[in-house]
Structure formats: C-alpha cells, structure tokens
Design a protein around this nucleic acid. Structure first.
Lengths: 206, 206, 206, 206
DNA sequence: AATGAATGAGACTTCATTCAT
DNA sequence: AATGAATGAAGTCTCATTCAT
C-alpha cells in the first residue's frame, strides 16, 4: 500500500531521532541534552521531535526503554549458553561494552532521571540479576563460590562495575573503561567470590 | 576597630551561606538547588550570595571543598586510633554517616559537577584511601587478608559503599542507608577480603 | 463520468468537515477548536482540511456562514406562519434551541472572530430583526404593545436572549438554558413590551 | 528606612505593569494580550513581569481583581447617595463609562477567561446587583415600577448594557457607546420597568 | 557589605500551514 | 483529491547574574 511508504518514512525519522538521542545522551549526558540538540543531531526540525514524542520526559523514557530492551535481550542471548557464573559475568561485561557510553550515563544520572526512566533502568538490572543469581546459587551449592546472600553477590558485582564506569574518566580518560578493566574486574571479583586467595583460580585453569 | 567588626560580620554571613548551601544540597540535591534556595535558607538576600561567591560554580565548589576538608579531617581523626583495617572501615562508615545526605548527593551527582568540584570529591577519596591502603598493606603482609592490589581492595570497598548510597532509595526509602546496612556491608566486605568463607570472622568475634 | 464522481467525493468530504467543525465548535468553543480536532472529528486527515479551506480563518468563516444561512432560513420558515410578535419570538427561541450550543459559542466569541465571521453573525441577526420588527410595528400600531423605537424593542429582546445564553453556565450549568428559561424570558419580555404590569398576560393565558 | 525607597520602587514597577496591562487589555483584548506586550507597554523587561506575577493567569486575575475592586468601590460610592433606582442605574452607567474599554473586554471575553478571573467578574456584578435590587424592591413596593422578580429586573438591565457594549463596534464605531447611548438606554429601561408607556415618565419629570 | 528588583538568554511546547507522495 | 509528516514562529516560564541604592 501507499501507506507503507509513509509509514516507513515516519519510522525512519523516529529512528533517526532515537538514534540521535541515544548518541547525544551518550556524548553529552542525558539531562544535559536539550531537545534542540537531539533535533539538530537527527537533522530534523525542532517541532518534529515533538511530533514523535509528547514531551521531553516521554522522549528520554522511550530511549531508555528501547536501550533497556536491547540490553536485556542481549543479556538473555549471551546468558543462554552460559552455565557458569564466570561466563555470565563475562557476557554481562560484553553487553555493557557494546553500549558503554550510554550505559555509563544511565548509571551516573539514574537518580536524577524522571521516575519512569529510572524504573526502566531498574528493570534492566533485574533482568541481569535474574540470570546471575540463578547461576550463582548453583555454584554456591556446588561449593565453587563462597556462600553468601545472593543479593550481596549481585550487588557487589554491580557495585564494582558501576564504580569503574562512574569513575571511568579517572581510570581510562580516553574512554572504554570496560575494555581496559573489565577482564581484571572479573578476575578480581571471582577471586573474592571463591575466597581462594587467587590460588584456586590458577590451579583450576591449569 | 570598625574594620574588624565588618570583617567579622562578613565572615559570619559567608558562614551562614555555606552552611545553608550544605544543608540544601543534602536535602534537594546539588544541581537541583537554586541560588534562591540557598539565600532563603541562609536568611540573606539573593544578591548577597553573589557578594561572597563570584558565581554558581564557585559557590558549589567552595561548599564541596569545605565539606571535603571537614570530611578528610574527620577521617584522619578517626583513623588515628585505628590499627586494623576493620576499625578503619568502621571509622570511614562513621564519618560518612555523619554527613550521609550530602555525601550521597556528592556520589550521585559527582560526574555532573563542575570540574573543580569533582576534583575535590576525588581528593576526599584519596585521603581515605591513604589510611585504608596503609592498614590493608599491613594486614595483607600479616596474612590476615587476601593478597590483592591495594587499589582493588580500596575500590571494591568504595564501590560497595557508593552503590548502597546511590541506590539508597531502593534499599532504605526512609533514608539512612548506612545506619541500616553499614554493619552488614562491613562484615560482607571483610569476609570477602579475608577469603575465609565467613568462618574466621565468627571465630574472631567469639 | 469520472469527473462527476470525483466532484461528488470532494463535496462529501467538504460536507463532513463542515459538519464536524460545526459540532466541535459547539462542543469546545470556536477559537478553542484546533484544525486537528476538526480533522479527527470529520474522520479525515489533517491536511485534507487545508485542501478544502485556504486557512483557519476561511474555515471558520465558512462554517459560520453556512450556519448563518441555515439559521436564517429556519427563521424565515418559522416566521412565515407567525402573525403576532409573541409567536415570532417563540419561533426565534425555537430556532435558537435547535442550535443552542453553536449559537451560544457564536454569541460568546463573536467579538473575537475574524471580521468576515463576525459580519455573518450580524446578518443572522438582521434576518431575525426583519421579521420581528415588522410584526412589532403592526402590534404597536394596534396598541398591543407599547410604542417604542423598533430597534430598542429588538435589541432588548436580543440582549435578554444573549445574556442568558452567555451566562448559561450560571443559570443552567447542565446546559440547555433556553429550554429552561426560554418561556420565562418570553413572558417577561412580553410583559415589559405590553407595559401591562403583568395583568394582561395572566388574563390572556386564562 | 532604606526599605521604603526600594519598596516604593517595586510598587511603582508593579503599578506600571498593572496599568500597562489594564491599558493593553482595553486596547487589544484580554486574551489577545501577551506577556511581551505588557512588558513592552510597561517599559520593563520580559522577566520583570514574572518577578511580579507568578504566571499569565495570576497576572490577568490580578488586573481584573484590581479593576473589580475599583469598580465596586466606585459603585458603592455612587450608590451611597442614591435613593431611587433611576439614580442608581445612572451611577452604574457612570462607573462603567470611567472604564468602558476594559469593562467591555471583560464582558466580551468573560466566558473565555480563567476561572479565577471569571469569578472576579461575577463578584463585580454581585456588588452592583446588591444595590440595584435593594432600590428596585423599594420602588416596586411603592408601586413606582412594575412588580417582577428582582433577578429579572437586574438581568434585563445588565443584558441591555452588555449588549450595547458588546456590539459597540456597530452602534458607535468610534468607541464610547455608553456616552452616546447610556442615557437613552436608561430612559428606555425605566420606561419598560414602569410599564407606563412612556407617559408617566414625562409626567413625573414635569 | 548587603539588598533585591530587574534583566534576558534559553528551555519546553503548541499548532497553523506546507509539501512530497 | 487526500494524506500526514515535517516545519518553525510564537508564546510561557525559569533562573543565574547584574547593578543601583
């Protein structure tokens, strides 16, 4: 139908806006990005953004939801083949690295975002938590990692990741903190979790 | 002399403004506090704030520097009597609890603050790090805690604390996250650090 | 021919738009109705309205002209069988009641409308005035109503009607002011016009 | 005190804004006047208007309240010495003539104003109604005017006045409808009210 | 030194109108 | 002829900063 052509056109514009917003959010920060910035980056007029999103809040919530969906999906995908916690955490790192700039902004500004947007961020974490907790429980049962409340296990991991992302400008001023520190963080965390003074790890790998 | 009188007056006003700002920052958030809010809370006129601080940025930087100094000093004080890491971390928690609202805002908004303010935040952490690292090194040498890079030891601790502060609205919606979770976090972290599967801790306490 | 088919189609669309506009104007108010509202109510696209009317002003002027024609026609129809002023005024009330919502909006917003639209409103009143004045003159000559300038007779009647319509939200918050007060206003006005201290009226009705 | 000087300054600015608004409202219409227009007319910056009035609605409500107070006061003053309805209505006309432009805008736009502003307009009318009804009752009792519900008496008078004001552009395109038609309307209305076919009036005046 | 009224740049949002399909 | 996405002018409102007193 003719509609398809228009529909496509509109969808493309929406895409352009969302992509521009995603990119601007990553580059400038979420709350520091103005509707004008997005419009300009998307190459559309100021009013067009409002033709696609009712208001500022709806716009950023949508971007975060979109991103959240993508990230959650990616996490699920990566988690599918993972039986061990270690693999899972590695997958988690991978999925973060794919969107590091944006994800970092999310971590940094989460508390300042409109509630709807913040809730979405929480849901992303819940999805991750589900997979990780499951695997962690298994390995605790198997005695591979120290017994501890699952929540603490998960929170410690998230805390480490978020800390390094938040302070990325110190650890890796050129960006890409996870590329540089991700592996190290994973080893460190696994070491702590196993409580093996780092020996076991080596032994196991041997 | 009259000059002295005036000087004193001025200093008092400055004090009122700084205290008001500190309090408002804790209550409303740093970036969410307007110059007007500070002036009103200080009981001075809007313009007076600008008589003491060149601009918004200078104002918040000064407050954070002041706070940083106070917090660092407190950390030193508390650290003085501490020989063991565990005591030191407990002291760190104590000093945070004394300023929890403001410190949390700092953690949450750090990345969005003017560079000068951010740098101050970094210095606070350096002061803490100095003491903790020293003690940690001692205990690692003594074999009380697992060997690991000092930076990782410190960062893991900070990450945990900041994670709980940042997400305080989830963990303790009524506020005072550290009062509620501080002790638990300390045990958890020490457990990880000792790598003792939680056994040693119990033994020690007995 | 195909041309005829198209012409017909076009005319039908135009009809839908005009009817929708009439209805929306009555419901929301004239100036408060946006082009979008009309398009949606008509079940056509936003742009279609502009294919039929050069701009907003042309659109509302046309609606009012159309309505004016209809109302004038109706007034003539109803006036045909009326010999007495009283009957005529009753007919006037009837014709107003048929379009009360829209007519009220017209009364309320007349002064704010584009000149062309306003002129149409004046013409409606002229048509009514023609009939009423004629009958009023007859009855004044016959001594049934007090002698007074015809214009004053007419204006007083219109003033009363418009006042009650304009303030309908006070007199009859549920709407339909004329259904509720029309009869009363007619009696009141006739009483004033006859100058009979209300006696005659009662006698007549008996 | 020094405060007085500033207070005065501020009050003057507020006055300038209110006067400018009053004048612009009269000239352009109330809803057609933008904050910018008022600022420009008052010779102050855009932001200054918002320093004095929280928002658009507060601004126009204040102007109408101010005006309403003035008008009500004037009505009371003029009503004080009036024993007869006729004098009272004349006084009412006088008070309207003093603010004809603005009052006409109020009449014309009343239904479209924010509720608070509209309520104020209603209160103005209530004040007038109080005096008029009182006098009318007396004269009805005395048999000087026809017996009729007070509300109808009052509404008929208001209707006439508002009708002529609303349609002033037809009756007196150069403005000042009431100066030109006020006296005539008063005679006409009194004639209707007395129900004396105009004879009594002449006799009485003789 | 303190005041607080005034300023104006800048952000969001609405909606009549245009135009490519 | 109909569509509806895109446009951009215009309006409200906020708040850091200035400046006369």
């Amino acid at each position: 139908m003719k509609n398809n052509q228009r529909q496509l056109q509109k969808e493309q514009t929406r895409r352009k806006i969302l992509d521009a917003a995603f990119s601007e959010f990553g580059a400038r920060g979420i709350m520091a990005t103005r509707m004008q910035d997005i419009a300009k980056a998307a190459g559309v007029s100021h009013g067009t953004v409002f033709a696609h999103f009712a208001n500022y809040e709806a716009m950023i919530t949508t971007v975060i939801e979109e991103f959240g969906g993508k990230m959650t999906l990616r996490t699920h995908e990566l988690a599918c083949d993972c039986r061990e916690v270690r693999e899972l955490l590695a997958a988690h790192l991978t999925s973060i690295m794919e969107f590091e700039d944006f994800y970092t902004r999310l971590v940094v500004e989460a508390r300042l975002l409109p509630t709807a947007a913040r809730d979405t961020f929480i849901m992303i974490q819940s999805a991750v938590s589900f997979h990780i907790n499951q695997a962690a429980q298994r390995e605790m049962d198997a005695g591979n990692i120290r017994a501890m409340p699952l929540a603490l296990f998960f929170n410690t991991w998230m805390a480490l990741i978020h800390y390094y992302l938040s302070n990325g400008y110190l650890f890796a001023p050129e960006g890409c903190v996870m590329k540089r520190y991700g592996g190290m963080l994973l080893e460190h965390f696994m070491g702590l979790a196993r409580g093996d003074c780092g020996e076991k790890e080596t032994a196991e790998n041997a």
